[in-house]
Design a protein around this nucleic acid. Structure first.
Lengths: 108, 108
DNA sequence: AGCATATATGAAAATGTGTTCATATATTCA
DNA sequence: TGAATATATGAACACATTTTCATATATGCT
């Protein structure tokens, strides 16, 4: 009975492979400027693929590929309206972390 | 006078290049399993380069390269004791975000 | 100075990532 | 069904990242 009585969670346990994988994937999603810009846009409201491409001056294909990446991690979701897919964010925790880090970066 | 009266910071402003760069670099630091393991280790206490290499079964050179990466972003610092360098974390905000995300990943 | 130990560094190799291009699929409408 | 529009997909390319290997540098000790 020596360790972690009422200490902060996450310290003192070791990192199992699965946790490590999830954490690294999550941060990888946030490590690319294009994906950050997409998520930041989606933090405001839903947008279609073409709207995202236009707003950010990116190719339709590039946006689609990145959305698939984000979708696989369940960071975004979409709803269909005819042939148009409206994407929106789908992970409040991750969006919150992105927001925190943007604020932190801005405060210099 | 239409937007962002008392809304959350970081929304509604656009992302300037510099902020985008800092944010993406920060997350890139956290996106690699080796660096995550190093930072996680350093969240507990300071360790020398060789201690880190042994604890994590990594080559001395690989650890040194990653520490330089983290040092450039001012995420870690070191103190010298003879020929030994003891590294420790140096950014509470980033360590907090790492901790949050590990907890989040563990809760599935 | 010479030797031992701890760490850093540069280049090469192996692997991973992001964009583009061409094309496929899905939906709507006439 | 056929045309039009929106999005997805796969392959190829360019570029970036991570590790390894060999070697350099720094410090302390005798």
């Amino acid at each position: 009975m020596e360790e972690s009585k009422h200490t902060t969670p996450s310290v003192d346990k070791d990192l199992d492979e699965e946790t490590l994988f999830i954490v690294s994937q999550t941060f990888k999603a946030l490590s690319d400027p294009t994906r950050i810009r997409i998520l930041y846009l989606l933090s405001q409201k839903e947008y279609s693929v073409n709207e995202i491409a236009e707003k950010l001056s990116l190719g339709q294909s590039a946006v689609s590929h990145q959305l698939r990446f984000l979708k696989n991690l369940r960071l975004v979701k979409y709803r269909r309206a005819g042939t148009t897919l409206y994407y929106s964010h789908d992970d409040k925790h991750v969006m919150n972390i992105l927001k925190q880090t943007i604020d932190h970066a801005r405060h210099h």
